[in-house]
Design a protein around this nucleic acid. Structure first.
Lengths: 214, 214
DNA sequence: TGGTTAACCAAACAGTCGTTTGGTAAAGTA
DNA sequence: TACTTTACCAAACGACTGTTTGGTTAACCA
């Protein structure tokens, strides 16, 4: 089921230093291909999933040998954690930029959803982070990934909180329904289809806005 | 990535007889454990995913040896197809039974969503079929799985069609939003939480009903 | 009662997986 | 210039993967 060496290695990595940060503290040398590995891993995992992407695949995509990846990342799981963190940061920046262009609460939420959805369906080099396709490994790993997404989720909770919804609407379920529908969109979305991310986000919010508008 | 023998075996199985049907045409003998294998596979795949479940896991759960599974199924993929078909049939029956208890269009849709959601979060022995966690294998396989779900999806399209929605609402996006939010629910659902499947389904539909009610 | 076949067991095969180990050329530092 | 560290390469290790092959036992049929 799982390899027996992982626990030891993960523990030792946590004891020494945290390599999971989005950017290495300092690129010690000019030709450091850590970022190349990260980009290749993100691209492949986004396309094939975690289990469907081997360390040999990532190494070949980067032009390295499999063992060389372990100079930069102590394990495949830690590599995925780094990819996950970078993807969360990236989608966070995109959503923040979109929110900043609007002032009205509903418009801000719509811009956020549109940016979120665009990141999910348009970027091939960024993992669909919201996806529950993370490795089925330890509970500790899942806790780390979920914690990384918490701040992102709270951002949407804040946008919903600003909406002035009637009391009969559960704001938690409102957010879960909107984000759920959005996160599921990549399942049926087709790039050449009739609706783009912005239109879909607009339609989703239109269907929810009715009760509360004006 | 993929094994070289699969194509040959799948082809030969399609040439001889179709083992993917929901029920074997006739249980040749009394103690035929094909159904046990199917149930064990469904239970394990629902919990660990397709890649996370090995043939040895399924065999051990059934009390058989790994090789013996190949008497009943020509490959792991074909076994999953059978599990998928059974799960689709099961959820179809549950939704049909729920619909039959209601007559008003909105009530029928709500009953269908509630039954759909209950099947997703409450049954541990049935794979979350709607999940995009199917094997990342061949396009032909994916086409078969999607075709199996088409009739099921059309059922919801029919329920939405009966709703008498205003013209400004795209009925396709209405259905995709509702089912997307529902299919995503298992990601955040906690069995001991505040809301059960029926309440969640009711809340989802309340948030969509407002514009169109009366 | 003899033969056929369904339903397995026992054991292996070839490949892939994540990972480790030991070495090495180049860059940085003194 | 000597020494250290960085960033790899080359090659393997052991575990696990889906799958195959050949044998075996009990149920069925004539």
């Amino acid at each position: 089921m799982s390899d027996p060496c992982r626990a030891k290695r993960v523990a030792s990595s946590e004891a020494t230093n945290d390599e999971t940060g989005t950017a290495g503290q300092s690129n010690r040398r000019q030709n450091n291909r850590r970022d190349d590995v990260l980009a290749a891993a993100a691209r492949l995992i986004a396309r094939q999933g975690y289990d469907g992407t081997s360390m040999r695949d990532i190494a070949a995509e980067t032009g390295m040998l499999p063992g060389s990846l372990y100079y930069h990342f102590v394990s495949k799981e830690e590599l995925f954690v780094a990819v996950h963190a970078e993807a969360v940061a990236s989608i966070n920046r995109a959503v923040d930029a979109a929110i900043a262009t609007q002032s009205e609460p509903w418009a801000r939420l719509e811009a956020a959803v549109a940016a979120h959805l665009a990141a999910l369906v348009e970027t091939t080099d960024t993992v669909a982070i919201v996806s529950p396709n993370f490795p089925d490994g330890s509970a500790a790993l899942n806790a780390r990934l979920i914690a990384e997404r918490d701040a992102y989720e709270r951002k949407f909770a804040g946008l919903v909180e600003a909406l002035d919804l009637p009391e009969c609407v559960d704001k938690g379920l409102f957010r879960l329904m909107l984000l759920g529908a959005t996160n599921w969109t990549p399942v049926w979305y087709r790039p050449g289809g009739r609706h783009g991310p912005a239109e879909i986000a607009g339609a989703f919010l239109d269907m929810l806005r009715s009760r509360c508008a004006v």
